[in-house]
Design a protein around this nucleic acid. Structure first.
Length: 552
RNA sequence: GCGCCUAUAGCUCAGCGGAUAGAGCAUCGGUCUUCGGAACCGAGGGUCGUGGGUUCGAAUCCCUCUAGGCGCACCA
């Protein structure tokens, strides 16, 4: 990656300058470069001399000049200039730039890949919704965030596993089972009351009816406890199938579906509890068992086992993270949670620390709330109240591509409105079509060339010298940098902005440069360029889990 | 009361401590009509919520305040 190359050159120059005595031997600040907004300042610029000036008290412009003298010329770089008050600017060489078109074509679908992760193992756990009902838009946001992030991390050289944690144990599931039993009885004309903490949505009635259609009234005669258990299992399977189906529609897939219950069945829960006990992190208070978070700087302790003997959600999450880090040995674990889990972060970090794991290895991304609207009308999303618009309905209305793009283009930490009316009405203006259109346009050009029997394999890319052509190449070269940023910050929205930028630059090129003309040599060169652009666009769309259509 | 998130153009949002704060939509005005017009080019529009501070330099970092959201369970 050219960005890395330039940073290396600067680092070496700084070291050489120190050796020669032009710069004092002090600890150097980190060398950073950026893309100047003004093209006259080149492709890359470093303000390193300005930063160093502070610590050593030398005129930044002098530092810049001294350092520039130590930068060894390379084929990639056309010129290195020094600009006040102390910038070092780099301009890329045109021959090198055009040569990158061939490089992109050679790389093909792997173009953009970098080796940031060096094969280290990362788990991305996301969605992990309790199987008590259908998914809603908020879950969709987490799903798209997680799957896009996983795609990018894989491209950045990490060994990625995607996981869905199935909460098939615990009190909320118990409430779900009891609700299902009540609806089942009611649908068969029996007298039954919904539990106070029950799930009141219409989908529970539908679920009961589905089960009745298949299983008839056979559970009616069983003792309630047994009926609840058996019905519950059937209900759980059906809801999980529905969730999987919804996620598939969004092109979200998982490598592992991890069962909460298995933590008990496999003894992980017991193991981790005795570990924490030995570490002195467990205390008995008021008839319950507590994790002593206060020993690790937390505000308060947290219950792990209730006074009735049942473990809390926090208890299984402790076992789960023990399993992730210790049993399965992930180097890094990324959890994507909804905003309502914010308060859970610090105590989970405390747990991880108590298990002797560096807390930085656990990254939690909080995706803020999505409010759903139809025009001005707010639609409440609550599984219990029952008045829900499901994720599936939203996908049906706006389509998976638009849905994905819409969610991925906003940072996780700001709340967003999802206006169904607007999403539908403006779907033709949706940026997703703008980007996909660029791809389809290129495909169309390539079809034309094929019809004419033009083979561009021997095309000479050095003919690509005009501004629109070089601008397009420059933009294509940014993809690896974008992947680096996304993998580092865990903020996939940069990808969506890049996709739009790339499409814009292509459309602009298209307007100014005709590809297929009487000029055979130029035609072949531009066909190569356009094919490379198609490669980069497709890769970008695919990383976002979107289609790159040849026709629309 | 405490913790976390947010506040940037009319609207929806980008913005990595750096050189003139950007994009889409909307508005206004152009291009064009031989590779797909679902396109391109241009213009207007901003005291970056408030008030301080750090810095050669702050939308960006620190503090105050205001407004909105989410948490602060022996729910998950």
């Amino acid at each position: 990656m050219i960005r890395r190359r330039i940073i290396e050159l600067l680092t070496r120059a700084a070291n050489e300058a120190q050796k020669s005595g032009k710069l004092p031997s002090v600890a150097l600040p980190e060398i950073t470069i950026e893309h100047p907004q003004n093209p006259e300042h080149g492709d890359y610029a470093s303000s390193f001399p300005l930063k160093l000036a502070r610590t050593i008290g030398v005129n930044p412009l002098t530092i810049a000049r001294d350092m520039a003298g130590f930068i060894t010329p390379t084929p990639e770089i056309e010129s290195i200039t020094v600009a006040p008050p102390g910038f070092i600017n780099f301009t890329l060489n045109n021959d090198w730039l055009t040569g990158q078109v061939d490089a992109i074509l050679t790389a093909g679908e792997s173009y953009g890949n970098i080796d940031l992760g060096k094969g280290s193992r990362v788990q991305v756990e996301f969605v992990s919704v309790n199987p008590t009902g259908p998914l809603h838009v908020g879950h969709g946001r987490g799903a798209i965030l997680g799957s896009t992030l996983a795609n990018v991390l894989a491209a950045a050289g990490y060994d990625v596993e995607k996981e869905y944690y199935v909460n098939d144990a615990g009190s909320q599931m118990a409430a779900f089972y009891r609700s299902l039993y009540a609806r089942y009885q009611q649908c068969l004309g029996a007298d039954a009351e919904m539990p106070a903490d029950g799930y009141l949505g219409q989908y529970m009635v539908d679920l009961a009816k589905e089960i009745i259609a298949e299983q008839k009234e056979r559970f009616l005669s069983l003792p309630p406890e047994e009926a609840i258990a058996k019905l519950g299992k059937l209900g759980l399977d059906r809801i999980m199938a529905q969730i999987r189906g919804d996620l598939e529609l969004l092109r979200v897939s998982f490598d592992v579906w991890f069962s909460e219950q298995s933590l008990y069945d496999n003894g992980q829960y017991k193991k981790v509890m005795s570990l924490l006990q030995k570490g002195g992190y467990i205390a008995e208070k008021a008839n319950a068992t507590w994790f002593v978070s206060t020993a690790l700087g937390e505000d308060k302790d947290n219950v792990v086992v209730r006074s009735d003997g049942s473990p809390t959600y926090f208890a299984t999450d402790i076992a789960y993270h023990y399993n992730k880090f210790i049993e399965r040995g992930f180097d890094k674990v990324i959890n994507i949670w909804g905003a309502d889990h914010q308060g859970h972060i610090s105590r989970m970090k405390a747990v991880v620390a108590a298990l002797g794991i560096a807390p930085e290895r656990l990254k939690v991304i909080i995706s803020q709330m999505v409010t759903l609207r139809r025009g001005k009308e707010l639609v409440k999303i609550s599984k219990r109240s029952g008045d829900i618009i499901t994720l599936r309905e939203v996908i049906d209305e706006v389509g998976a591509d638009a849905c994905r793009f819409f969610f991925v283009s906003r940072t996780a930490d700001s709340q967003m409105d999802f206006d169904l009316e607007l999403a539908k009405k403006q779907s033709a203006d949706n940026p997703v079509y703008y980007v996909q259109y660029a791809h389809a346009r290129i495909a169309s050009i390539l079809r034309l060339a094929e019809e004419k029997g033009i083979d561009c394999a021997d095309g000479d890319v050095s003919l690509l010298t005009t501004e629109p052509e070089l601008t397009l190449i420059r933009k294509m070269l940014l993809l690896p940098e974008i992947l680096e940023v996304v993998a580092f910050t865990l903020e996939p929205h940069h990808l969506a902005y890049y996709a739009q930028d790339l499409a814009t630059v292509f459309h602009s090129f298209y307007m100014q440069c005709r590809v297929v003309t009487e000029d055979e040599k130029m035609t072949k060169a531009r066909l190569k360029l356009v094919e490379a652009a198609k490669t980069v666009l497709a890769r970008t769309l695919n990383l976002m889990g979107m289609n790159a259509p040849d026709r629309m």
